[in-house]
Design a protein around this nucleic acid. Structure first.
Lengths: 245, 245
DNA sequence: CGGGCTATTGACGCCTGTCAACTACGGTGG
DNA sequence: CCACCGTAGTTGACAGGCGTCAATAGCCCG
């Protein structure tokens, strides 16, 4: 058995703060489901969660693993994806700070989750969170609200993948990224694309070649400016919006 | 002002039963979110809801209408769909008895809903349901459970539309219908297809011609037997399953 | 500067959409 | 009872958008 106290280079003061004030100090709380909790409840809430930091391309969990935990992003990005038996990948979504993920209703995870860049998450054991919800109705309702909102976003994505062509999907993608950023108080233009072209392709149900071509088309038709491969500027939001309905 | 008492051909006894025992007598309660409520609470729950019957192809609500109500199907089928500005349709889902729909988190409906055949729904005013949830934690948690489950299904559909070809989508579709039926205690084979080919196409992100061709292919490769255009028998579930991953 | 990864661009082919003709079926009316 | 009509579904011919395969360019990091 490993005795952590020997190898963790943190002062008692830091541990104390970590143990009790993490939620109180959290900068994205106002964008997370925990915003439903009053200040007085934050210490108690911190105690039923743990924080974990991931570097680039680490798995948070894998599809079909037993799911005993739920997660909240506090920093960085996560991609959630499903694997088909022949190796094809579908990226379900790119998640941002404030996003909640995991599987509340099921015993196994329905998708895999992987960090994009340095990423911080809060981890909640399902049984602990569940017990906490019993006594904190406001949190349960906020969770219902957020899940319902996520469902709406998923339904929009069904529309994108079912009916839009490559051109329209790409326009929708950059518009969505921009909107997502402003939702959590970041500048909405220019936007950074932390994921690779292959990731974008697997997200939009296209190939990376098509994604690349469509970006070039948006560029030549003066709808966007490509600052570098991971940074683009939206030149004409109105036309981009009209493109993706 | 119309005085309903004059034109509604129901006895006081029927009204009384309708007013207090609808939930207690409901045959699909065990498949609905209201299964979370104990027998003792059913009369109270009946009183915050209303029942409405639709014939074929009637709108329950339209996309972008103000959303003040939530719905639960007790009989028949509903299709929920989004319209693009150029008239293209994406069917988000076909709903079955026990399914809950509407928009809990948003002020406007995110999609339109239309009946398929004769359909019965329970209608809940949002503010009434919300107040009821405050005092009945078990119902709120069941609603969270169901919404979370629906989210999972929506994410699966993202995978279908993003990565499967026409062949695989069609196989997935008949498998899903079969599973959906057994979930609510109906025979899972043969299955009826209450929707049109066009509806299936708009659901799968294909055209009706492609849907028709793929059904023919499944037929000629002895995976299904087409009893009539709205009734099919799954001959080889194992191979159908392996087809759609 | 060079190796390896990511992104772009080109050539070509296939899957699925489009357009059109034909068939099947169910309801209506003579 | 059958003729007629309208709607739904099937099948065929063809075209185009996007995938596939391959070569090239750009970029980061040692």
């Amino acid at each position: 058995m490993i005795r952590f106290t020997q190898i963790m280079p943190v002062s008692l003061h830091t541990i104390n703060r970590e143990m009790h004030e993490r939620c109180a100090l959290c900068r994205i709380r106002s964008y997370s489901f925990c915003r439903a909790l009053g200040e007085g409840k934050l210490k108690g809430f911190t105690s039923i969660s743990a924080e974990k930091i991931y570097t680039d391309k680490q798995n948070i969990f894998l599809q079909n693993e037993n799911s005993d935990s739920l997660y909240n992003i506090t920093e960085g990005n996560i991609k959630i994806y499903q694997l088909l038996s022949d190796g094809r990948i579908q990226i379900i979504g790119f998640l941002y700070p404030g996003d909640f993920f995991g599987s509340y209703s099921k015993k196994k995870y329905n998708y895999s989750a992987e960090s994009i860049g340095k990423t911080k998450v809060c981890i909640f054991k399902k049984d602990l969170l569940d017990a906490y919800l019993e006594k904190n109705m406001e949190l349960a309702k906020e969770l219902l609200n957020m899940t319902s909102h996520e469902l709406m976003l998923a339904q929009d994505r069904i529309g994108v993948l079912g009916k839009l062509n490559a051109n329209e999907r790409m326009a929708k993608f950059v518009i969505n990224i921009s909107q997502q950023r402003s939702r959590i108080g970041w500048q909405d233009n220019p936007v950074s694309l932390p994921m690779t072209r292959q990731d974008i392709a697997d997200y939009l149900g296209l190939t990376l070649e098509t994604v690349s071509r469509e970006i070039t088309k948006l560029k030549t038709s003066k709808l966007i400016k490509v600052l570098n491969s991971k940074q683009i500027y939206l030149l004409d939001k109105a036309r981009l919006l009209s493109l993706c309905h």
